[in-house]
Design a protein around this nucleic acid. Structure first.
Lengths: 312, 312
DNA sequence: ACATGTTGATGCCGTTTCGGCAACGGCTAT
DNA sequence: ATAGCCGTTGCCGAAACGGCATCAACATGT
């Protein structure tokens, strides 16, 4: 099923690899063929698409515009293919996900496992990144679905859903705070604290609150892995902060306790957004998984916010 | 700028014309070439795209899926072209509009004239149709922007805006009703009435109200042209019904009077929707006009509903 | 029933386009 | 200076494309 001009596909490969020869290797053709198609494209558009650096090619402004068009075309072709396949009964495809670390402990593995048990022909690619990297990967067409902190998202992305989860402190069950129902930030700062590094979005959620306090908190452990922070907290090293999403199973094994944060009487929210490229219709199998994802996250949002009702 | 496979363009032409030979004439190529590209396409998709009737070709289900994809590709190509053109300073393009008759008297000509005085390189195509035909033309990719009565719209269309205008009676200034501020349907039916035929959406707005009345209205003039109905009313032939949108200038020339309808104390609304194809990003010049259209219609909605404040 | 006009498909053939190979010049890092 | 990339170009065989003439199937008009 290759009814699009080779130029389109070659251009796409060159953009991804950043080099004509690398693209040629990926495409299993001679580099000269790729070079010629690119030159022909530039001639027809009437403007150079790449800047030739010694190390490879970089997109020009016009090149970026064409890249967007080509991405739209190829992604819509995928959707068409899946439409045809679903008509003939052969469902097969790959759902590519980019998400932040909070999802890896429970939400994502549960969902993927459940989905694959029902649709074994659908495979998955998951990549864990920082929030802004998730959005970038989505913009570049390297992922179908993105889950990230709901920051300002670029206009070429569409926010499919927005779910809010309470931010809380995570401590081992032997920790002095463990018997409380909720905690304030000040109460936590009386103990050793495991802080997130700026790469994690939790840092940006807590920083403004910490800045408001009169006392500067004592130096404590800093880390850039939610997993590591959780394991440290479980060993009683200190107080970590995260949404309850990240500690689903471990807290049921009763090693960890989740204490919703209470900031001057009101909860601290962490907004999770689900994103897709705006100029795109998803293939049926992707759309199907997306809906499950939204439903599941909505379910968790409902359940967890019911477990820790608002304190105000 | 023709970097898409000829098969794509040929398929598109065949779909529009409904015949290979007709498509070949439009494309200025031999019919055999078109035939072969279609056959090749079908072989690559692995399924027939058209049903061969003696009189021409009709899309199969798979064909319709491909048609959607091809439409997305070609429309997005247009957008890309306009993006490049706007970068190099050459703004040129055609905005294609499908709308119902109410717009032709004042809104559309005013807007187009004003827009062209500022952007002379942008040309327009306008086609007046019934509401459902407007939506169909939009779905088929034969228009960029559609304005129609806000019915249930198919899922492949996006409602950009929804504006409501009061429905009213239109009479000549010598008519006995002309001195009133508002009228009820019963008051109108005491006089000869110029009714809309079912092809016009006004018919579907008024019919349920008329059906509620105890008396069946006396037979009167029926017409399927808003223009004709307006001119008849101006000559004192009877009472016509329409939104004030359709009688802008004539009423200022004071030959016609617009009387908002009052139905059991509440106004009768006519909802006007602005639509575009959902799976599409508009070219810059189209987007620009669309925004002006939405703004202008919102302005008229505000102005007219202020001129005739709610009676309840 | 027959002739006529239309439809899409096919065989043949010249033209255009495409892709592979090898070589060239430009650049960077060692 | 050398080696290793990079993109580009000339040459040539192979594949794809388009035009012409022709065919069978079907609808229409007489």
């Amino acid at each position: 099923m290759r009814f699009h001009s080779p130029a389109i596909q070659y251009f796409h490969a060159v953009r991804r690899t950043g080099s004509i020869r690398a693209a040629a290797r990926v495409l299993n053709v001679a580099s000269s063929a790729v070079s010629r198609q690119i030159l022909k494209l530039e001639q027809e558009v009437g403007s150079p698409l790449f800047e030739r650096n010694a190390r490879g090619l970089t997109l020009t402004t016009v090149g970026e515009m064409l890249a967007r068009h080509v991405m739209n075309v190829l992604q819509d072709l995928d959707r068409f293919r899946s439409d045809v396949a679903s008509l003939s009964g052969t469902w097969r495809g790959t759902v590519s996900i980019a998400c932040i670390e909070s999802l890896t402990e429970s939400v994502l593995p549960d969902l993927i496992a459940s989905h694959r048990s029902r649709a074994r022909r659908v495979s998955f690619t998951a990549e864990v990144k920082g929030s802004s990297d998730v959005l970038e990967a989505l913009s570049r067409g390297e992922a179908d679905i993105g889950i990230a902190m709901a920051l300002r998202h670029p206009p070429d992305l569409r926010q499919v859903a927005l779910k809010r989860f309470r931010l809380g402190a995570v401590v081992s069950r032997e920790h002095p705070l463990a018997r409380r129902k909720t905690v304030t930030l000040e109460q936590c700062l009386a103990f050793p604290v495991i802080n997130a590094l700026p790469e994690l979005s939790i840092y940006h959620l807590l920083q403004p609150l910490i800045a408001q306090l009169s006392e500067t908190p004592e130096p404590a452990i800093q880390a850039n892995s939610i997993d590591l922070m959780r394991e440290l907290a479980a060993r009683g090293v200190g107080v970590a902060f995260q949404t309850q999403l990240g500690i689903g199973r471990l807290s049921r094994d009763s090693q960890l306790v989740f204490l919703p944060l209470d900031n001057a009487g009101s909860p601290v929210w962490s907004d999770l957004g689900i994103y897709v490229r705006a100029e795109r219709t998803l293939p049926a199998y992707t759309e199907s998984f997306l809906q499950e994802l939204v439903r599941e996250l909505g379910e968790r949002e409902r359940r967890e916010n019911a477990a820790y009702p608002q304190t105000s």
